[in-house]
Write a protein that binds this DNA or RNA. Sequence first.
RNA 1: CGGGACGUAGCGCAGCCUGGUAGCGCACUUGCUUGGGGUGCAAGGGGUCGCGAGUUCAAAUCUCGCCGUCCCGACCA
Length: 599
Amino acid sequence: MHRWSQVFIPTLREAPADAEVASHKLLVRAGYIRQLGAGIYSFLFLGNRSTQKIMRIVREEMDKIGQEFYLPALNPREIWEASGRWSVMGENMFRLKDRKGADLCLGMTHEEIMTDIARKELRSYKQLPQIWYQIQTKFRDEPRPKSGLLRVRQFTMKDSYSFDIDAAGLDASYQKHHDVYCRIFDRCGLKYVVIDAHSGAMGGSQSQEFMVRTPAGEDLVVSCAQCGYAANLEKATSKLAPVEDLQPEGDGKPLEVHTPGQKTIEEVARFLGVSPKNKIKTLAMMISAEEPERGTTRIPTKWEPGPVSRAVVVLLRGDHQMNEVKLSTALGGKDVRPMQEEEILALFHSPAGYLGPLGVDWAKNMEEPRKPILLVDKALEERVNLIGGANKENYHVKNLTPGKTFHPTAYVDLRSVNAGEPCPNCGAALRIDTAVEIGHIFKLGYKYTHSMGATVLDRNGKEVAPIMGSYGIGIERILTAAVEQNNDENGFWLSPAIAPFEVVVVSTNSSDEKIRTAAEGIARQLEESGYDILLDDRDERPGVKFKDADLVGIPFRINIGKKVTDDTVEVVQRSTLHKEDVKISAISEYFKRLRQMPT
RNA sequence: CGGGACGUAGCGCAGCCUGGUAGCGCACUUGCUUGGGGUGCAAGGGGUCGCGAGUUCAAAUCUCGCCGUCCCGACCA
């Protein structure tokens, strides 16, 4: 049993001026954490108890499907060179030198180290599948740490890696992680959604993120309340209401119209008396055609113009917005930037405001090198008689039909979904929320086993690379997300499973002998029944103790006051502030029942 | 990396413009008081005013440089 009078719980009446989001303010005020530097936090007594409990849950569940390792956070450069990520990780990786001048880094993730063990030790398909996990400190030199514990430079991650002989095996390992993650987050008392995430350009075939909705979140989640569809904004699609196409004008061939001074979609649409939905939005972009050099320490952080850049032109429906991540993914993960004025003139021979697809020699397909790429959003596929720029100042063109009057390099989904658009599955209105990512499961494929040369013999005696998955949970983010999800102006409340204590026993008057001994007795009794108890035995006024108890995240409180003469105490549930009188003799029984309840 | 703000006691802030004894609330210590929602009274302790230069008889205050933190953007396995 812990006595408040003897432990260190530095609660604050006021939050530091730096703190903006609820979890940051409250975790500092409740004495869970203190800041050491930008994105660097110390965990004090309560904070550590809570994260330790989270880790225990993670271990219990992960042990059902895998084996716990413990890998070094200090990594030699060579291992990261082997996968090519020494340079890819760029400035996000903390780097240092040892006394001999050798390069080292602090691990941001552990695919390399795990794959190194696999390539040295795994010999036969008979040893597969393997699921290896660890709970480890990760270091990432974030460009902008923020929001308290939400985006930090040092944090604890449960990361696991699966090795399977084939794709079916990976499917099974992936599914096991999915199910175990759900159990972990359920046990932590979180409300979360599992969303489809874009798996990036690195050959990953499937990826899902576990997200907790909160206004403090940095990610955007598109979801449907009716059918449960949920996806990252970078992946989400929507069904579109049909659009009535325009009738062809004249002979149906592209027809130039004079649109003096009309540049924006809205201006042109109004000028010509049509809807923006019948207009083409033309976006001129540039990509770098070259990957950063491997095996060097040169970190290309910025767009570098030069002969390697290549034009990419995107056509969207007039009222749609482009999603840059979708575009980048469609281009194999390359960085994209808007064209400069001179580049626009060079390609279109026209100033911006009148750009369109005609008169440019587009690449016929994605494989064709060097020629400018014309990507047309899927919402324009099958559409006819659209209006776009004429590549001539003060002129637009009618009767544009993709595939007929011009030929796209490819049709790709490139637009961002808007809230309220129909769900792609069921047609109900989609919602968009900000959310925090607490877990991520990812089918890696052969990226690391190939690049690092890990192989086993299959049943035919042939050398094959195992297929991998990687899976992560942010330990502190579970705590942070829980606080974001359950708080009010007086504090927050955690699920008993992850709260530093399950019950705080408050003696309302420590100078009253009867009250004090009753509080001691109840605390001891509950502790013997297996509960984590904090006894507030401080010589403080009741108001002070109540305020503190409400602040620090403990889900239940027992007030011991004047009613002890009646053998009665008061149990308060923090989440609802519901109060109930309970006989002292019935207190253990009462909590046995409460423990099953959601908080 | 671009834009903005801030840095004075553990926390929240004033003082700076107009240079001259470093202040307030909370917290802390001691005593009394009070005892169901941050009691009241009294007496105390605690500050390299982020760091370094410069101007000046004199710098928290003016000038320059640096560092740190936060916010917006860029970025984010």
